[in-house]
Amino acid sequence: MGTVALIARVMPESPEIDLVALTAEIRKQVPGLQDVKEEPIGFGLKALKIAVIADDAAGVSDEVEAKLNAIKGVERAEIIEVTLT
Rank of each mutant, 00 (worst) to 15 (best):
M1L: 10
G2S: 13
G2A: 12
V4T: 10
V4F: 00
A5F: 04
L6W: 10
A8T: 07
A8Y: 08
R9N: 15
R9K: 13
R9A: 06
R9E: 15
V10C: 02
V10M: 06
M11K: 06
M11V: 04
P12D: 04
E13D: 12
P15D: 09
P15Q: 10
P15H: 09
P15F: 03
E16L: 10
E16I: 06
I17R: 04
I17E: 13
D18F: 01
D18R: 10
L19V: 10
L19K: 15
A21N: 08
A21P: 05
T23V: 11
T23K: 12
A24K: 15
E25G: 14
I26Y: 06
R27T: 15
K28V: 08
K28D: 13
Q29E: 15
V30D: 10
V30Y: 09
L33A: 13
Q34G: 15
Q34V: 05
Q34P: 13
D35T: 13
D35L: 07
V36Y: 14
K37Y: 06
K37L: 12
E38A: 06
E38D: 04
E38H: 05
E39D: 11
E39I: 06
P40R: 03
P40M: 08
P40L: 02
I41G: 15
I41S: 13
I41Q: 15
G42V: 06
G44N: 12
G44F: 01
K46R: 10
L48R: 05
L48A: 08
K49L: 01
K49F: 07
I50F: 00
I50Y: 04
V52R: 05
I53L: 09
I53V: 14
I53A: 15
D56G: 04
A57V: 12
A57Q: 11
A58R: 05
G59Q: 06
S61W: 00
S61F: 00
S61I: 02
D62V: 09
E63K: 09
E65H: 02
E65Q: 12
A66G: 05
K67H: 06
K67A: 13
N69W: 03
N69P: 02
N69E: 04
N69D: 07
A70T: 03
I71C: 09
I71Q: 11
K72L: 08
K72T: 11
G73T: 10
G73Y: 03
G73P: 06
E75V: 01
E75D: 13
E75G: 07
R76V: 03
R76L: 04
A77Y: 02
E78H: 03
E78N: 04
E78I: 02
E78V: 00
I79W: 01
I79D: 08
I80Q: 05
E81S: 04
V82H: 01
V82T: 11
V82K: 02
T83K: 02
T83F: 00
L84M: 02
L84S: 13
T85G: 09
